[in-house]
Structures are given as structure tokens and as C-alpha cells.
Write a protein that binds this DNA or RNA. Structure first.
Lengths: 344, 344
DNA sequence: CTGTTAGCGCATTCAC
DNA sequence: GTGAATGCGCTAACAG
């Protein structure tokens, strides 16, 4: 049941060429390599292009050049606030170039990731940006075998495929946050994470510090299989209070979970930060203005996206580039929610 | 500075064809129109495709068939939670088909919207989904002239180009929310909106009701030019209290703004809902669990996305389809934040 | 600096 | 039900 295009008089290179009185390849060059065409011709051509409203056919271009000008971005999901800012940064930077961004979603499924990456690679992308991949034999091998530069974004504390990477040391960020809570006097605080690879790293960082302090207790180490949400934070707090009566705080893998906990604390009459310390992750916009304000780990997500785009473009232009791992750093933003048990 | 592909032995239809002992067109058919190939051949071909890991070349396919299997989605921005859910719904539905989704962002710029739409149309998309467009001569004309079905998503209270539409009556939603606040006894509540077209409609709905009640006051009718955020809500509340000392509530065009106001109310010692009524929009996940819980207008965003995808696919398959406008409806979810001046 | 020739990988059209 | 010829619109490689 395929529709028939009315094939309205599509304007092609040849139309432009004919009207200017040159060959089509010259028009092509005027558009793609302007410096290879004399100024006068170039001017005439561009004017005609403008006049006719000529728009290049990407498919034809890709087919002919074996080069698609597409930078593929593989994401685990659409509904992730942290990733959205990164994507915005990527878009912003790539928007200034002749490259185009194209997305694929894996829904956190390893198998989907593999097939999406394969699909991208089969279309000869100019470059590939991947996020949220767990290190695995299969993805690693595919990525290493890619014909185009591949950049991994977000975490740099684990090796996935040993190429270009930009992000933060997630595990260390978790260590810093955990240490902070210890310093503020909390002893029995939970760590709430998810099933994804970055959460795994946050758990690892939490364990590192808690075990060293002799305070690790598996009952506090929570892996949730659902997407982060304030609602989840609510439910979790109730569950935790039930199972661990002497709990005195939580380190959440996303601020929205912490937000939910904060609200639930209020409802059950638990004072934050005096009775319950709360630390989030991502420094979402409400963290700075909540009451109390929320301690969180800030990652320069937008800049990270711009940086990522920068790196992939550079790699595309310089095929011989060395593997490179860029750490954009994080900041623990200390706010009221972890002021400590003796807070005013 | 273009890289040279190592042109690794890309597997083509011809490779598959040769190995099976048929012509390439038969392989093509086995893949695209399975019923036009005998069962036995089809089976052999598909097995070989699998074995070789053949992946079709979209560019070649598009060029040859003048049909790209791409459904273009034009969005104002990446960082909009409401749109995100809609996109998820779209992805979910289209994922089950042979179509692919491709995005373009306009950054709320009319000019960008026009050029993005032009760009899409020049690539022969199978269909186009647009959101957040203001009704304008130019976009309307382009959309009407498109060779493919075009679907407008989100609001159906205004005409933009008179084709397929699915969404809610935003203006009516604003009316319902405004009436609700009046019924609960609030008289001097602000309406906070943005510069986009849906916000404009919310303002209009608010005006409709407030003017009819003889309570409209322009000082309460606020158009903000920055993206919604909790932080904005905070600042706005302070500004409002300053300028309108007798203010008794706010209807915000997004829940995050209401959230910020809620926090700021707490800080300045204003009781919600007794002294200040608060109504949001979009029913984001925290609205149901905040303290107090937040009254909001719920729009079935995910389903809306699925529905949108459904509609565009149907329109693609049935070229002669009539213009159609589907109202998915909204719900005012009444919660604690508008319980009224005499609450609890 | 410009043109000619050829072909990217696939699907349409018409044969058989 | 299957195949042969042809061309989609553009650009690479070479020529001039």
C-alpha cells in the first residue's frame, strides 16, 4: 500500500546547472567545495540555487559519496532529563556544521543497542555518539570495528571500547557524595540506584566509601528497576522507614527521587536535614530552590554535549586521532538537605 | 577534509542474490513485498540475508523509490517534558513499523520551523508530524502543499493548516482550570505563561473566564519569555507578592513553575492552599506526591503520541483521507493545592 | 578551474 | 512468480 508521489517538479542540480550554463558537477562543487569554483561562477550559482529554492537530495548525495553527513546518537531512552541537556549541547554544536544529528533509542536493552548501532554503521554515518552503554564484549567489538569515529559520552570510569570518551568519573562522584554525607554525620543512609550502568557505578562508589568506613549494610543498598520519579522516592522512603527504622538519610541517583523523599519526609514529620539527610544527583533546576534546598552532584551536561560534538567533529576531520578520554568534572553542590543532624 | 571509507566489503542485494542464485530484484521483493515471491525462495533468501548480515542501504532505497520511510517530527525544543512523553508514544508506535522517526528542532523560531519543514519535505518523507507551530500564513501554505500527510499535534483549539490534527483544546483546558480556582474561592490569582502558541491559548482561556467574572486584571496576566523551571516559579512568586500584595494564587503553564512557587510560599510563610492557591499544567509526576499535592491539568501525552503515530500511518496508507481533528481530552486533577481558602 | 564519464545500491517498469 | 534494463540525483576520478 505505497503512496504514489505526485513527483512535483523537483529541482535538481541539473536544473540549476542548465540555467547557469555550467555542468552539474560545478554546481555540486560550488555547494560543497566553494573554493574549487571561481568566485564569479560561484556567485551566479548560489544566486540561482537561492532563486530556484534548490534543496540537495541527501539520499543521492549519500549514495554517491558513501558519506552521509549524519552523526548518529544512540541513547537508552527519550525520557531522561540528564541526557536531554547533553543532547541539547550536541544539537547546538552540530547545528553550526553541515552535519545532521540522528537519534536511535535502545530502551536500555543491550540487544537493541547492538542492532541500532549496526543499523547506523550500515548507513555510513560520519560519526557515532553513544551513551549509557554497559561495557560488553559485543558492543565493544562492533564499536571498535566501526569505519567512523565513535565517541562515548557520560561516564569515563569504565572502559567500554577504548576509543574517544567524554564524561565524568561517576564512581568517584558517588564516593565524594558519600563521603560528604559521612562528614555531615549521617551513618545509616541508603543509596538508591537503578539497573543501568551508571547507576551501577554510583553503587560501587558508595560501597567503596561505606565499606572503608565499616558502615556498609546491604539493606541500605537499593537497586530499583523502574525509571526515576518523585513518586518512586515517596514509596521508597516509606519502604525504607519500615525496614530500616534507624535510617538517617539517602543518596539518590537522581534528584527527582530525592524530591519525592523530601516530600514524604515532610508528610511523615521527618526533619530534613536534622533527622534525615538527602543528597541527589544531576542538580536539576529545582534542587537550588526547593525547601530545604537539595544537595546534589552537578554535571556540566550541556557543555558536555557541546564538548562531545566538538570531539566527534574533530575526529571526523582528523581520521588518525588517538584514543582520548576527556573528564569534564563534576561538582558536589552542598545545600541545606545535608546540613547535618545538628543543623540550625 | 573528508575521510576515506575503507569500504569494507559492504554486502549488497546483489551479493545475496548471487549466493541464492536469483536476481537482485527478487531479493528486494522478498524483503519489501514478501507475498510477491514464492514461499520457498523467500525462505532461502531471508536465511541468506540473515546469514550474511545484509542491511539495506536506506539512501539507495530512498533514491530509487522516491520514498524514504522517514516520518519527520518537527519540535520546538528538546527540553520540554510534555513533548518528551508525546515523542515516546510516537517512537513506541512507529517502532513496530518499517518507518523511521527523524527529528528537527526549531528552537521556537518561526523561520527555523519553515526551513526545517522545507528540508524535510525535500527529502520525500512518508509523513510529517509537527508540534508547537503558531498558525501562520507561511507554514500553513507549506504544510498544505506537502506531498505527504501532515499531522499537527498538541493543540486543536486553533486552525493552523486545516489537515490532520490530534491534541486537546488548550484554551478550554485553561478555562476549566481557571473556573476551578474561582470555585474554590480564589479571586486574585495570576496566570503565568510563556511566549509560545499554546501558552497564548492558555492565557486566552484564563481571560475568557476572568473577564466574564469581572475579575480580570492585566497585572495578574504574566507572559514570561524564559523556559519553565522551578527557579522561575520562585522568582515570579517574589515579584508577584511585591507588585500585587493581595494576590491569592497562581495558575502556571507548567508544573515545574508551580513547584517553584510552592517552595517559595513555604519559605515566605504563605500557606498553600489556605492563603495561596496553586494550579499547574501537565500533571508531571511530582504533582501527585508533593506536599501539598498539586492540582494540575493532565493530558494523556503518551497516548497522544501513540495516537498521532497511528493517525499518520493510517494517512500514509490511505492517501485520500479526509481532514480529521481528534480531541484526546484532558482532566483537571484536583488536589490539595487548590483546596480553598478555608481548607483543613 | 571546469567538464566527462561512470557508478553508488536499489526499485520501477515492463517483459517473460 | 521472476528477470533485464533503466534511472533515481549526486559526486569521485580523471581529463583537459
Amino acid at each position: 500500500m505505497r503512496r504514489r508521489r505526485s513527483r512535483r517538479d523537483k529541482i535538481t542540480l541539473i536544473d540549476v546547472a542548465r540555467l547557469v550554463g555550467v555542468s552539474s558537477i560545478t554546481v555540486s562543487r560550488a555547494l560543497r567545495n566553494p573554493d574549487k569554483v571561481s568566485a564569479s561562477l560561484r556567485e551566479k550559482i548560489l544566486k540561482m540555487v537561492e532563486e530556484l529554492g534548490y534543496v540537495p537530495d541527501f539520499a543521492a548525495r549519500t549514495l554517491a559519496s558513501r558519506d552521509s553527513d549524519v552523526i548518529g546518537v544512540v541513547l537508552p531512552t527519550l525520557s531522561n532529563f540528564a541526557l536531554m541537556s547533553v543532547m541539547q549541547g550536541i544539537e547546538e554544536r552540530i547545528h553550526q556544521t553541515h552535519y545532521r544529528v540522528q537519534y536511535a533509542y535502545t530502551r536500555f536493552l543491550e540487544a537493541a543497542a547492538v542492532s541500532q548501532i549496526r543499523l547506523f554503521l550500515a548507513q555510513n554515518p560520519a560519526g557515532l555518539i553513544v551513551t549509557g552503554l554497559s561495557p560488553s564484549e559485543e558492543t565493544g567489538a562492533i564499536l571498535r570495528s566501526a569505519d567512523c569515529p565513535v565517541l562515548e559520552v557520560l561516564d569515563i570510569s569504565e572502559e567500554t571500547y577504548s576509543g574517544l570518551r567524554v564524561g565524568i568519573d561517576t564512581r568517584e562522584a558517588a564516593r565524594v557524595a558519600t563521603r560528604h554525607m559521612l562528614e555531615r554525620g549521617y551513618r545509616r543512609f541508603a543509596m538508591v540506584g537503578g539497573p543501568d550502568s551508571r547507576s551501577r557505578l554510583r553503587h560501587a562508589g558508595y560501597c567503596d566509601v561505606m565499606q572503608a568506613a565499616g558502615l556498609y549494610d546491604p539493606v541500605l543498598d537499593i537497586v530499583e528497576n523502574e525509571a526515576t520519579s518523585a513518586d518512586l522516592g515517596c514509596r521508597l522512603l516509606r519502604r525504607l522507614l519500615d525496614r530500616v527504622p534507624d535510617i538517617d538519610g539517602a543518596f539518590c541517583h537522581n534528584d527527582d527521587v530525592a524530591l519525592g523523599m523530601m516530600f514524604e519526609c515532610r508528610r511523615v514529620g521527618l526533619a530534613v536535614p536534622q533527622q534525615f539527610g538527602l543528597c541527589g544527583f544531576n542538580d536539576l533546576d529545582f534542587a537550588a530552590v526547593s525547601a530545604p534546598t537539595l544537595t546534589s552532584v552537578r554535571v556540566p551536561r550541556y557543555d558536555l554535549g557541546v564538548r562531545a560534538a566538538d570531539m566527534i567533529i574533530r575526529a571526523i576531520d582528523n581520521p588518525g586521532l588517538e584514543p582520548l578520554s576527556v573528564d569534564v568534572g563534576f561538582t558536589l553542590v552542598e545545600r541545606e538537605s545535608t546540613l547535618g543532624r545538628s543543623a540550625g
